[in-house]
Amino acid sequence: MHEMSLTEGVVRILEEQAASHGFTKVKTVWLEIGELSTVVPESMEFCFGAVARGNPLTAETRLEIIRIPGTAWCMDCSKTVAVTSRIDLCPDCGGAKLAVTGGEEMRIKELEVE
């Protein structure tokens, strides 16, 4: 489960930002996870609870996950289309020449801190 190491990385980033900006508690963290990122949001939630526990900065932090839909550019019909998988065909023309343009990301979007 790579979500555990990803969650540990998120908590490290929060600790670095706390040191840089002088806050002592993260109340809420909004995390964007793309539909094509191979990250399972439910696993991130579970891992965050385990990793954040006992850490004074994150012990009471609420994790809010924002799911980012997958998008791709179809080289056959020159349109941006919604995709749910890297092997999808274009929903408009049925073409297979798709270049993913969104939905692969995982990033911290916003923090609410004290």
Score class of each variant (00 low, 15 high):
Thr84Ser: 11
Val81Met: 11
Lys25Met: 10
Val10Gln: 01
Thr71Phe: 13
Glu60Asn: 11
Val83Ser: 05
Ile66Trp: 03
Ser37Gln: 06
Glu104Leu: 15
Lys97Arg: 15
Ser5Gly: 07
Thr80Cys: 09
Gln17Trp: 06
Arg107Lys: 15
Pro41Tyr: 08
Thr28Ser: 12
Thr101Lys: 15
Arg107Val: 11
Ala50Asn: 04
Glu35Ile: 02
Ser85Asp: 09
Leu111Val: 00
Ser78Ala: 14
Val113Ile: 14
Arg107Asp: 12
Met4Ala: 11
Met4Phe: 15
Lys25Arg: 11
Met4Lys: 07
Leu89Cys: 12
Gly49Arg: 07
Val51Tyr: 01
Gly49Thr: 02
Gly95Cys: 09
Arg12Lys: 11
Lys79Met: 15
Val40Met: 06
Gly49Ser: 10
Met75Ala: 12
Gly22Ala: 09
Leu98Asp: 10
Met1Lys: 09
Val10Gly: 11
Glu3Pro: 13
Glu112Cys: 03
Phe48Ser: 06
Thr61Asn: 01
Ile66Leu: 05
Ala82Met: 10
Ala96Thr: 02
Val83Asn: 01
Leu63Gly: 07
Ser78Trp: 12
Leu57His: 04
Phe23Leu: 01
Thr7Lys: 05
Met44Ala: 08
Ala50Phe: 12
Gly54Phe: 15
Val83Asp: 00
Gly103Phe: 07
Cys77Lys: 03
Thr101Cys: 13
Glu8Ala: 07
Ala99Arg: 10
Thr61Lys: 02
Met1Gln: 08
Ile68Arg: 01
Leu57Asn: 02
Ile66His: 11
Ala59His: 12
Arg67Ser: 13
Gly22Thr: 09
Leu14Trp: 04
Met4Glu: 08
Val29Pro: 12
Glu32Asn: 07
Pro56Asp: 04
Gly22Ile: 02
Pro41Arg: 00
Gly103Tyr: 04
Glu16His: 02
Ser5Leu: 15
Ser5Thr: 12
Val100Tyr: 02
Cys90Arg: 02
Gly9Asn: 07
Gly22Arg: 12
Thr84Val: 13
Met44Val: 15
Met4Asn: 00
Pro69Cys: 11
Leu89Asp: 01
Val39Ser: 00
Thr80Arg: 13
Glu15Trp: 05
Arg62Gly: 05
Ile68Lys: 02
Phe23Glu: 08
Ile33Asp: 05
Glu3Ala: 10
Thr61Cys: 09
Thr61Asp: 09
Glu112His: 05
Ser20Asp: 13
Val26Trp: 04
Glu60Ala: 14
Pro41Val: 04
Gly95Asn: 05
Val26Lys: 03
Pro69His: 07
Met75Glu: 14
Ala18His: 06
Glu105Cys: 14
His21Gly: 01
Leu89Lys: 01
Arg53Trp: 14
Glu60Pro: 04
Gly54Asp: 13
His2Tyr: 14
Asp88Cys: 02
Arg107Leu: 15
Ala50Val: 15
Ala59Pro: 09
Met1Tyr: 05
Gly95Ser: 11
Val29Thr: 01
Gly94Asp: 15
Leu36Ser: 00
Asp92Ser: 10
Glu105Arg: 01
Leu63Trp: 06
